[in-house]
């Protein structure tokens, strides 16, 4: 009993804390992304400088008030003032600086372009190296899309083929049907021809037998008297014919 109460209280506490955490995170993550005022930062081009290190903005700041030569005049004037009043002290380190400046200037103008070229090449190589996997992946996916499209095209061809096959089967069915119709017709015609032939034959045979029977009966019916009369009559006719001649 007691353990159950303890469990319940623990469960209640837990739910309360989780609710609090959820609410806190909800307030943290709330808000719509403001792309207009807070666009995603992009990597820009390096800022322009003059004389190797002075930002272009410094000259633009002077340009509207003093013209093109203003900033240079200001620089030279300030340097002249500092040197003339010996605020800038030309001690031994100044001449060291001058010689170092000459060396740096020579090195920059002499080797700078070559080193810049080599470094640009290296930068491109590094960037290509980093992009390679992505580019390869994109190429692979595009190729897959192409293949998929070709497969779909082939599937459509298969549909056409199946259609043609179905048509072919229908044609075969039609041919078989007509063939059977034809065979039924010929069979019926054959049987009818047989019947016709049979009835003709029967009639002929009956006629023949009838003729034979009649001739036989007639021959049987002729008596010798009749024969003699006929013969006489024939002779008389012949003699009559001869007399007429």
């Amino acid at each position: 009993m007691l353990s159950r109460i303890a469990l319940r209280s623990v469960a209640g506490r837990q739910s309360a804390t989780t609710a609090l955490v959820a609410r806190g995170s909800a307030t943290d993550a709330v808000g719509e992304r403001d792309e207009k005022n807070f666009p995603r930062p992009v990597r820009g081009e390096p800022g322009k400088v003059r004389l190797g290190f002075v930002p272009e903005e410094w000259f633009q700041f002077f340009h509207s008030k003093t013209g093109v030569t203003g900033p240079y005049t200001f620089g030279v004037g300030l340097a002249t003032y500092l040197c003339s009043k010996e605020i800038y002290v030309m001690e031994h380190e100044y001449y060291t600086g001058l010689s170092i400046f000459v060396m740096v200037y020579y090195a920059t103008t002499r080797f700078g372009p070559k080193i810049a070229q080599w470094l640009d090449k290296e930068v491109d190589a590094v960037e290509n190296n980093w992009n390679e996997g992505r580019v390869e992946n994109v190429k692979f996916l595009e190729q897959s899309i192409e293949e998929e499209k070709a497969a779909q095209w082939r599937a459509q061809g298969q549909e056409l083929l199946i259609e043609a096959k179905k048509e072919n089967v229908l044609l075969q069915l039609e041919a078989a049907y007509r063939e059977r119709l034809m065979s039924a017709y010929t069979e019926v015609k054959r049987r009818l021809d047989y019947q016709l032939e049979k009835s003709n034959m029967e009639r002929r045979i009956a006629q023949k037998h009838m003729v034979e029977w009649i001739v036989a009966n007639v021959m049987k019916a002729i008596t010798p008297d009749q024969e003699k009369q006929t013969l006489d009559r024939c002779i008389a006719d012949l003699s009559a014919l001869a007399a007429k001649k």
């Binding site: 990597r43 390096p46 800022g47 400088v49 190797g52 810049a116 930068v123």
Partner: peptide, 12 residues
Amino acid sequence: HKYVQPKRVGMA
């Protein structure tokens, strides 16, 4: 961001 981080910076 202006002078060091761009892709092709000079000696500036």
